[in-house]
Simulated assay, not measured.
Amino acid sequence: MDTNTLLKQKLLSLLLLAGVFAFIYNPWTKFPYTFACITAMVLLFTWLQEKSLGGLNFKSLRLNDVAIILGLFISIEAVADFIVQPAANSFFNEPADYSAFRSIQGNAPKYFKYLLYMWISAAVGEEVFFRAFAFLQLRKIVGNHFVLTVLLSAVLFALPHLYQGAAGLVVTFFFGLVFGAIYLKFKNIWINIIVHGLIDTFFITMAYYGELDYFG
């Protein structure tokens, strides 16, 4: 591939990544529809760019993947809750701001609605964009610099969570690093989606039972 073609490819990937990321902040769609739209955009742009969706790594799950997923969920949740979150709260001298989720407490209809929304928007939407699509485009931009790819994707993942405060941003960046490492290791976006969904399910369930201070 000649230099001119390579530069055009890098520029296209950069524009696609930046354009889809910018859509997160559009004023017309709200949670969870923003990431539902982003998922559709990712599928469309990937198909147009690659003539295939194979690069997004929607692979079949095997039976032993269940144990892997559960192990990842438990270990990530433990590290986040007992090490990363307390350290971030202590460093910034304030807990992450999860007040947006307090309205779920004791409200069963809202709880199940948020669960559905979280699986659509966060588990599926965020993983398809911040891992599958971002990794595909970043590889074209930075090459096989996998550590840099994980770092950049984690930064992109953390930025839309600024509303959670500095501590929340650090915790989200941690999750971004971990999810990136998982995707790099297993190269199966379904594993990422399910692990992410389980983590968010635990969070929403704690919010329902009025235990958000557990994360503080």
Score class of each variant (00 low, 15 high):
58 F>D: 06
129 F>E: 04
24 I>H: 09
88 A>G: 07
88 A>H: 03
131 R>G: 06
73 F>S: 08
176 G>P: 02
3 T>S: 13
174 F>Y: 14
158 A>Y: 01
35 F>A: 04
101 F>H: 10
86 P>G: 08
39 T>N: 02
13 S>F: 03
155 V>Y: 04
160 P>C: 11
102 R>V: 13
166 A>H: 06
62 R>E: 15
161 H>R: 05
51 K>A: 15
33 Y>F: 12
117 Y>M: 12
199 I>D: 01
67 A>L: 15
123 A>M: 00
190 W>T: 00
192 N>Y: 04
133 F>Q: 03
46 T>A: 08
86 P>W: 07
158 A>H: 02
202 F>R: 15
28 W>F: 14
75 S>D: 08
87 A>Q: 03
165 G>D: 07
4 N>R: 11
66 V>P: 00
52 S>A: 13
117 Y>Q: 10
146 F>C: 07
207 A>T: 07
144 N>K: 14
70 L>W: 14
45 F>K: 01
14 L>D: 06
100 A>P: 00
101 F>W: 11
14 L>E: 06
146 F>Q: 13
77 E>W: 10
185 K>P: 00
165 G>I: 09
60 S>G: 12
168 G>L: 01
216 G>F: 12
172 T>S: 10
150 V>E: 03
119 W>N: 01
148 L>F: 10
45 F>Q: 04
59 K>R: 15
56 L>I: 06
166 A>D: 10
82 F>Y: 15
152 L>Y: 01
5 T>D: 13
67 A>F: 14
69 I>Y: 02
173 F>A: 15
17 L>S: 04
22 A>Y: 09
134 A>F: 02
4 N>K: 12
89 N>F: 07
191 I>R: 00
173 F>C: 09
75 S>C: 11
97 D>I: 13
78 A>D: 06
20 V>Y: 00
46 T>E: 13
184 L>C: 01
193 I>M: 07
187 K>D: 08
85 Q>H: 09
60 S>R: 12
135 F>G: 06
40 A>Y: 10
177 L>M: 14
143 G>M: 09
71 G>F: 06
6 L>D: 14
38 I>G: 00
114 Y>C: 11
34 T>N: 08
23 F>V: 11
190 W>Q: 03
14 L>M: 14
166 A>Q: 11
164 Q>I: 07
201 T>H: 07
85 Q>R: 12
195 V>W: 05
103 S>V: 11
20 V>D: 02
25 Y>K: 08
199 I>M: 09
127 E>G: 04
116 L>W: 12
78 A>Y: 12
157 F>T: 00
182 I>E: 05
